[in-house]
Design a protein around this nucleic acid. Structure first.
Lengths: 125, 125
DNA sequence: GTTTTTGCAAACTTTTTGCATGCGG
DNA sequence: CCGCATGCAAAAAGTTTGCAAAAAC
């Protein structure tokens, strides 16, 4: 890891779990992948640390659980969340101009945005 | 209300609280506004009912609480959430073409999307 | 050796649920 | 009246926290 922090086993396990998955994961999902080799609380603490240091990005898809995805390697992107099967696909799109317009006309200093789509994937239509 | 459902006091109170506020409210906030005149559980049940019937729209701004806003009257819009003071402003933007592109290239049947911006409002910059 | 991090257990917060009672139409 | 909706209380579910023990460096 980095950030002047220690590279411990629980942290390795979290990174490991996240990097083996291509979809955002909940804390529970990450925890399940590491079979008692670290505590759930450590998972949460690690995710908080990594989120603050922009190593992971946090998402909410509306079911009350936060999901996390490694930033490393991933382009900036958004998600298509199937409301039937729960599957998640990545979408990339160039929304740059749109964001600029919002920034300009609002006077807000926009640091990040979440854009998620909900609907039905091809299999579920 | 409608939906073939009964217009009861708790439901009136929820609609009332929501219509007197111009920002999305949490269940707790709604509950607080109605001073023991209805139960929190009824607030949740009402919000669920109204969400399913598209009378309210549900949002998540990343703090683990769901927020609700009356659809009635409001144009389709998005939010600017200040990460410092928590204030929420509405933004309107024409993102139509962008949405179409995503729909076309993904094969997803998109039913709705959430787009929220996080940053610093003018006062907090 | 000292500081950071962990595991465990307990607490907290938000949301959901069961059930007997009560209100709306 | 009759069934849907409510209040209350208890339970889920997700996340956070305190603290002594253990691991990094």
């Amino acid at each position: 890891m980095k950030v002047g922090k220690r590279m411990t086993r629980p942290r390795k396990l979290v990174v490991d779990a996240l990097s083996k998955n291509d979809k955002p994961m909940t804390a529970q999902e990450i925890y399940s992948k590491m079979k008692n080799k670290a505590d759930l609380a450590s998972v949460y603490r690690t995710l908080e640390l990594m989120t603050k240091n922009n190593l992971v990005q946090e998402y909410e898809f509306g079911d009350g659980k936060k999901r996390y995805e490694l930033v490393n390697g991933h382009e900036h992107h958004h998600h298509l969340v199937c409301q039937h099967c729960g599957n998640v696909e990545d979408v990339e799109m160039k929304e740059g101009e749109l964001m600029e317009k919002v920034a300009n006309k609002s006077g807000f200093k926009i640091e990040r945005h979440n854009l998620e789509f909900f609907g039905l994937c091809q299999d579920c239509q």
